[in-house]
Simulated assay, not measured.
Amino acid sequence: METLALNALIETAAKTAYSYNEYREMTSNLLAQGKVTGTEQSEDLLAYGELNERRMQRWEKTLKITEEDQKRMKSFSGDMLWLVISESWCGDAAHNLPVINKLADLNPAINLKVVLRDENLNLMDEFLTNGGRSIPKLILFDTKAEKLLGTWGPRPEEATRLVLDYKEKHGKIDEQIKEDLQRWYNKDKGQLLITEVLKILGV
């Protein structure tokens, strides 16, 4: 897609996007009704949604950002939109979205918004990962310069290698790699995501 058209697509999606708190409230309300976001509903997806609610609550309470990384984040200047493509049933989104929110909160020049993948497939299809609609996907857009600075996602590079190596060895994604990935996130505590996003920002 041409740059102007892509910029317009990003800006249009942002107009109907959720703030982080709105996204959390919406997903919690859906769970209370026995539902998740997205076009599909099932017992498995609902179970993932309930698990992810607990994960996000835990990260919101326990995540720590070092003083050095806080200083680097605050040093960024310029108006920016952080648009995250997500769904409530996605485990990677549950681990990473709270970290992205904590980072965005450090700099008032950053406007964090969340859009649902299944409601924004035209946007999603501009930011595929190896041809797939993998989420979460963070789009970093300089609103002043009307320029895409970069993207991040669906998970930190080390975690991505963990999954790809497992899939190459075993030929599939199963419960074992999901458990391995959960342990990786618990050990990393959001630090690699922070490092990678700061690198994109150049601070």
Rank of each mutant, 00 (worst) to 15 (best):
K102F: 03
A8R: 15
L201K: 01
K172P: 14
E196K: 06
I110V: 10
E60G: 01
M73R: 04
E40R: 14
Q191F: 02
R55G: 03
T195K: 15
L51C: 09
K61G: 04
W184V: 01
N122C: 11
N107Q: 01
A93L: 10
L164P: 06
K61F: 11
T16V: 13
Q176K: 14
R72T: 11
D118M: 11
A94C: 03
S75M: 03
L83T: 03
K144V: 05
W89G: 03
E53L: 12
D125P: 05
L192Y: 14
K169Q: 12
W82R: 11
S134K: 12
D79V: 00
L121P: 01
W82E: 10
L6P: 01
L121D: 04
Y18H: 13
Q41H: 02
K61I: 08
A93M: 06
N52L: 03
M26F: 15
D174N: 12
L140S: 03
K74E: 03
S42L: 05
T151Y: 12
G131Y: 06
Y185E: 00
Y48C: 08
N52D: 02
L112D: 05
E68C: 01
D118C: 08
L138H: 03
I177N: 11
K15D: 01
Q57P: 00
L148H: 09
I139Y: 05
L45M: 13
N7K: 11
T3C: 00
L112P: 04
E119W: 00
R161S: 15
L198W: 00
G153R: 10
L164W: 07
D118V: 00
Q191L: 15
E25C: 12
L45I: 02
K35F: 01
N96M: 07
F127G: 05
M56I: 06
N130E: 15
G49P: 01
L46P: 02
Q191V: 14
W152C: 03
D188E: 12
Q70F: 00
A17R: 00
P108A: 06
Y48K: 12
